[in-house]
Simulated assay, not measured.
Amino acid sequence: MAKNTLPEPPQSANLIQSGTFITGDIESNGNIRIDGTLKGTVTAGGKVILGSTGTVEGDIICINADIEGKVNGTIRVKELLSFKATALVNGEIMTDKLAIEPGARFTGTCRMDTNTPDTIPAQHYAEAEQQ
């Protein structure tokens, strides 16, 4: 007898659209995409995607990150941090793995360490692993 299985739904992301301005901290157990402006800290138990129109004035703390926009602050990524060609980053970064496309601009310090402590709060990481 054939086994019918439904495909898994794609993992959706919280979205802050272009033209949206937020002042304050954001916490998500999953993924988040920022195309607007955030003044504060974003903490995610998944991936943070900062689109080319996105700006973060504050810290980014997550499992993985793709940065296409502007960041002025500290970025702490547990696994892979990717700077796309349009990225403009000013601050400190801490990650296990770093990928930088030609054209990306980074001013600051970088620490690459597989044992980066306190990258994200334990409850976010545990919840992300369960998903």
Rank of each mutant, 00 (worst) to 15 (best):
Asp113Tyr: 05
Asn72Pro: 05
Thr20Ile: 10
Ala128Val: 00
Asn90Glu: 14
Ser18Asn: 09
Glu79Ser: 02
Glu27Asn: 09
Phe106His: 13
Gly19Cys: 11
Val48Tyr: 05
Val42Leu: 03
Asp59Pro: 05
Gly19Leu: 10
Pro102Gly: 15
Ala65Glu: 05
Asp113Phe: 00
Pro10Cys: 06
Leu98Asn: 08
Ala126Cys: 05
Thr55Asn: 07
Gly24Lys: 08
Gly73Lys: 04
Asn4Cys: 04
Ala128Thr: 01
Ser28Lys: 12
Lys47Tyr: 10
Gln131Thr: 14
Lys84Cys: 07
Leu88Asn: 13
Ile120Lys: 03
Glu68Tyr: 11
Ile93Lys: 05
Gln123Glu: 10
Lys97Tyr: 09
Ile60His: 02
Lys70Phe: 08
Gly91Trp: 00
Ser28Pro: 02
Leu50Phe: 05
Ser18Gln: 12
Leu15Thr: 12
Asp96Ile: 01
Pro7Leu: 04
Gly58Phe: 08
Leu15Lys: 14
Pro9His: 11
Gly36Glu: 09
Cys110Met: 09
Pro102Thr: 15
Ile22Lys: 00
Pro7Trp: 04
Ser28Val: 15
Arg105Asp: 10
Pro121Thr: 02
Asp59Thr: 06
Arg111Gly: 10
Ile32Lys: 05
Gln130Cys: 05
Val71Trp: 08
Tyr125Glu: 13
Arg76Gly: 10
Val77Gly: 05
Leu98Ala: 09
Ala126Lys: 12
Ala44His: 01
Lys70Arg: 15
Asp25Cys: 02
Ser18Arg: 07
Thr23Leu: 05
Ile60Leu: 03
Asp118Trp: 03
Thr119Glu: 07
Ile26Lys: 07
Ser52Gly: 04
Gly91Met: 06
Asn14Arg: 14
Leu15Arg: 12
Ser52Pro: 01
Glu127Ser: 11
Val42Phe: 02
Glu79Ala: 00
Gln123Arg: 08
Ser12Cys: 05
Pro102Val: 15
Ile67Glu: 15
Leu80Thr: 11
Tyr125Gln: 06
Ala85Tyr: 04
Met112Thr: 01
Arg33Ser: 14
Ser18His: 11
Ile49Gln: 12
Ile75Glu: 10
Glu68Gln: 15
Leu15Pro: 13
Ile93Ser: 07
Gly108Thr: 07
Pro10Gln: 10
Glu79Leu: 00
Ala85Phe: 01
Leu38Ala: 05
Val77Ile: 06
Gly51Lys: 09
Leu6Tyr: 08
Ala104Asn: 08
Thr37Gly: 01
Leu6His: 11
Ala13Val: 00
Asn90Trp: 01
Asn29Arg: 09
Arg105His: 11
Ser18Asp: 13
Asp113Thr: 03
